[in-house]
């Protein structure tokens, strides 16, 4: 009960942070500014296109949720230290593990609330516009996107114990973008090189987060069939395991951090 109250307080703090800072308002306005004119566009005077709107909507959802999740998570610890709010926080009868877990869970819940809001709007608009909506693929895409957010926030949390928030965002951003673009090419690249580069590429392939496994936008946009649920759950479990690994190391480091 005691720990639950502590976690609940820490989660509420992150939600206040997100909503009071108006990040959500900014991204919603940006999305409206981009999407509304596009929805009225008739390229070459021909109406009826919808997939490009879906594509851009989902791209914005990915971009905004990633930016919100990463910036919020990367700032948790450095901001607490910079603003010295860490002192009264650590002076309270909550263990550092609970504090880190609560702050991480708060950012995660805040980011996921944005994600769910945008996915809800996407589903609502699509079901209103079209008789057919691929619900199964949609749920899988949502589940994998949630997995992705869990993974990248844990990664950013771990990074925040090594770097300041800007450096953390850069390093995590490069790692995530690199893995999305080249994650599946690493074994091919490794085969083309000799030691030690081959070994480094193999280690990277096995240790770096496989962010390329979470994107089902193309399936959703082009109405492809759903993937096997087993594969979907495997990816979800992979994200959970990876996030738990990152969180475990982050907790270990945070418990030893001098403030």
């Amino acid at each position: 009960m005691h720990t639950l109250r502590q976690l609940s307080a820490l989660i509420r703090l992150s939600l206040y942070d997100l909503y009071r800072r108006k990040d959500l308002v900014i991204v919603t306005i940006l999305a409206v500014v981009v999407l509304v004119p596009m929805s009225f566009a008739t390229p070459f005077g021909i109406k009826g296109a919808s997939r490009y709107l879906n594509e851009i909507s989902l791209l914005l959802v990915w971009l905004f949720v990633l930016v919100i999740a990463m910036t919020r998570t990367a700032r948790i610890i450095p901001t607490e230290i910079d603003s010295r709010t860490i002192y009264p926080l650590l002076a309270k009868p909550a263990s550092r593990t609970v504090i880190l877990l609560g702050r991480y869970a708060g950012v995660l819940i805040a980011s996921l609330s944005v994600l769910l809001l945008f996915y809800g709007l996407y589903a609502l608009i699509n079901t209103m516009k079209s008789a057919f909506f691929p619900w199964e693929v949609f749920i899988q895409a949502l589940l994998l996107h949630i997995s992705f957010v869990i993974l990248v926030t844990a990664l950013a949390l771990l990074g925040s114990l090594f770097f300041n928030s800007d450096a953390n965002l850069s390093v995590s951003g490069i790692l995530i973008a690199g893995m999305i673009l080249y994650g599946q090419q690493l074994p091919v690249l490794a085969a083309e090189h000799s030691l030690p580069i081959r070994a480094i590429l193999h280690i990277l392939y096995w240790l770096a987060p496989h962010c390329e496994l979470f994107d089902m936008r193309t399936r959703l946009i082009h109405h492809w069939p759903a993937i096997p649920w087993l594969a979907c759950f495997c990816i979800f479990l992979y994200a959970l395991a990876y996030a738990a690994f990152c969180f475990g190391i982050a907790t270990w480091l945070f418990n030893r951090k001098k403030v």
Partner: peptide
């Protein structure tokens, strides 16, 4: 302290941390 909270919310937060 957290600039986006008011005093009640701040105390509620710290109170929660104290269980």
């Amino acid at each position: 302290y957290y600039p986006y909270l008011n005093i009640r919310e701040l105390l509620s937060f710290y109170g929660g941390l104290c269980g």
